[in-house]
């Protein structure tokens, strides 16, 4: 794979085919856990690790897998990986694990992961599949973090509360910016509003980019009609 192929894989995962923003996959955890930045980061890391490893394993075994039984095999691989990740979280980040609760085991049902196994890893060599897993996982994690930060800031007036669950130390409310906030943001409807705003923002940025590149094109000399 050449450098431009790598760049385009990365760009696809992070932006043009972002699992959350564009493909709208894995919305259940995305909407449910993003009430704080740290929760978003935690689930983002877990999903990234699972996606990376499932892409690797699916790509490595793709020669031996009959297409008739590929889906059960993907499910098997993904479910085992998620179980391992959950055990590791429980052992090393017990508070974060408690705070994410059922959403770690539920990564199994995140269709973004099966989608990458089916659409990419099963058809590509290990190298590109690892890059794809990394790019898609990072894209998803960044979105979770962005929505988490936004909802926490608007809804509770804090940022990075509970960061101790990841890096250790005293329990903290994080940076307290205002005391209390606009409650709606941390309730379920706030999750939908935040995602809608994020998608709208992405579309607006894309449109501006397109317009800019159109404007930047050299203009044809005007025909002299006068």
């Amino acid at each position: 794979m050449n450098a431009s192929g790598l760049m385009s894989r990365l760009k696809n995962g992070l932006w043009f085919e972002n699992p959350g923003l564009v493909q709208l996959l894995g919305l259940c955890p995305l909407l449910a856990v993003t009430s704080t930045f740290v929760n978003g980061l935690g689930l983002g890391i877990a999903t990234l690790l699972v996606l990376l490893m499932s892409n690797t394993l699916v790509s490595a075994t793709r020669r031996w897998i009959l297409s008739e039984i590929r889906i059960p095999i993907y499910v098997l691989i993904i479910a085992s990986l998620v179980t391992c990740i959950e055990l590791i979280f429980e052992a090393f980040f017990p508070d974060l694990d408690r705070s994410l609760g059922i959403f770690i085991p539920l990564i199994v049902t995140n269709c973004a992961i099966v989608a990458r196994a089916e659409l990419f890893a099963s058809r590509n060599a290990i190298g590109p599949s690892i890059i794809d897993g990394l790019a898609m996982g990072t894209g998803f994690a960044l979105l979770l973090m962005a929505i988490g930060a936004f909802r926490e800031l608007v809804g509770s007036g804090t940022l990075f509360s509970g960061i101790d669950m990841l890096i250790g130390g005293e329990a903290t409310r994080g940076l307290v910016i205002t005391d209390g906030g606009w409650l709606l943001a941390i309730l379920p409807p706030g999750a939908f509003f935040s995602l809608a705003l994020a998608i709208a923002a992405k579309n607006a940025i894309d449109r501006r980019q397109r317009k800019k590149s159109r404007d930047a094109m050299p203009r044809r000399p005007r025909a002299l009609t006068k």
């Binding site: 031996w64 897998i65 009959l66 059960p72 095999i73 098997l76 691989i77 479910a79 085992s80």
Partner: peptide, 11 residues
Amino acid sequence: ITLAAIAAICT
């Protein structure tokens, strides 16, 4: 056989 082998590895 493939399914069984992968199940064993995953377990």
